[in-house]
Amino acid sequence: MTPLRLGIDLGGTKIEIVAMDAQGALLLRERCATPQGDYAGTLRAVAALVARVEAQLGVSGVPLGMGIPGSLSPLTGRVRNANSTVLNGQPLREDLQALLQRLIRFENDANCLALSEAADGAGAGAEVVFAAILGTGVGAGIVVRGQLLHGRNGVAGEWGHNPLPLASADELARPACWCGRRACLESWLSGPALAADHLAATGQALRAEQIVARLREGDAAARDSLDRYAARLARALAQIINVLDPDVIVLGGGMSNVAELYDEVPRLWTPHVFSDSVRTVLAPARHGDSSGVRGAAWLATT
């Protein structure tokens, strides 16, 4: 039988599982809603997904990798820095390994995106890949010469909780991020952040995807909101280019589906990059919204 691996992406709104073969082909994919504010319920939901998929495939005890918002502390082994705050401080690894009766490889969800896209996605063959999630939260992962970069403190790629570069007084006045800091990139570049910015500017309570749809219908206010978003993203990514100088920047998460960003942002980042040319490529994740969970599955045998 072809060796299998399972990958799970534990997100703020959904939990996704895939079964993948040794060549990276997806054999099965399922999702369920993430129980909101319910840690025990989240454990049960993950276990139910694993049991259902293994039953459908007629297997058990398949190697499992898991992407989570935040990361495991090198000091305590417990979850830290998760925007799904119900996970913070919890012994997720120990609880799930006991529940599922197997070892599980854990990584930050943006690291899983980076691993997937560097392996056989938009960053395949590149020496340095910076992969950013622009979804319910904002984070990033870094792959250098095929290897994930973790860093001395295990926070390499924690881009979402750096301050927005060149923030205006109005931008600094935004209410504090859930982490307690002000002007975090997550507060400006997530999907909910676009919605909040549009609400503040227009009084219209729309989801990010509705704002983009209205832009494409010619709505001027929606155009202004996306222009502000693109300018902020350009400033934030220019800082990454100045520090890391990646070959490829890959975008994942819901905002990565906004095609207009791939023309606008490189045009806007140029004045902020300390170079006479900018050859960094900005690209959407080749594997789309399956990329992070594919990266989690790759963990199972790495």
Rank of each mutant, 00 (worst) to 15 (best):
L4M: 04
I8V: 15
L10E: 12
I17M: 02
A19R: 05
A19H: 03
D21M: 06
Q23G: 03
L26Y: 01
L27M: 10
C32N: 12
T34M: 14
T34E: 11
Y39W: 05
T42D: 03
A47W: 03
A47Q: 12
V50L: 10
V50I: 12
R52H: 13
E54D: 03
L57F: 04
L57S: 06
G58S: 08
S60T: 12
G65V: 06
M66P: 09
I68N: 06
I68V: 14
P69W: 07
G70Y: 02
G70A: 04
L72N: 03
P74L: 09
L75W: 00
T76V: 05
T85D: 08
N88T: 08
G89D: 07
L92P: 01
R93P: 05
L96T: 08
Q97W: 04
A98N: 12
L100G: 08
L100K: 08
Q101N: 13
L103H: 13
E107Q: 14
N108D: 09
N108H: 10
D109N: 08
A110W: 07
A110L: 06
C112F: 11
L113Y: 06
L113V: 06
G121F: 02
G123N: 06
A124L: 07
G125I: 06
F130T: 03
G137Q: 07
G141N: 10
V143W: 13
R145T: 06
G146E: 09
L149V: 15
G151S: 14
A156I: 14
N162T: 15
P163E: 13
P163I: 09
P165R: 01
L166Y: 10
A167W: 13
A169P: 01
A173T: 11
A176V: 15
C177N: 04
W178Q: 09
C179R: 10
G180L: 14
A183D: 10
E186G: 09
E186T: 10
S187T: 15
W188Y: 15
G191L: 10
P192M: 02
L194C: 11
A200C: 05
A201L: 10
T202W: 01
A205Q: 13
L206K: 07
A208T: 14
A208Y: 01
Q210Y: 07
A213H: 11
A213N: 04
A213P: 03
R214K: 14
L215G: 00
R216I: 00
E217K: 12
E217V: 04
D219W: 03
A221W: 00
S225P: 03
Y229M: 14
A234N: 07
Q239E: 12
I240K: 01
I240P: 00
I241C: 13
V243T: 11
L244I: 15
L251I: 08
G252W: 03
G253N: 05
M255F: 04
M255G: 01
N257H: 11
V258Y: 12
V258L: 12
A259M: 00
L261Y: 04
Y262I: 07
D263Y: 00
E264R: 15
E264M: 13
R267I: 00
L268M: 09
P271W: 11
H272F: 15
H272I: 01
F274I: 15
D276C: 07
S277H: 14
S277R: 13
R279I: 04
V281Y: 00
A285L: 05
A285I: 08
R286H: 05
R286G: 01
H287K: 05
H287S: 01
G288H: 02
G288F: 02
G292K: 11
A296W: 09
A297I: 07
W298D: 09
T302P: 06
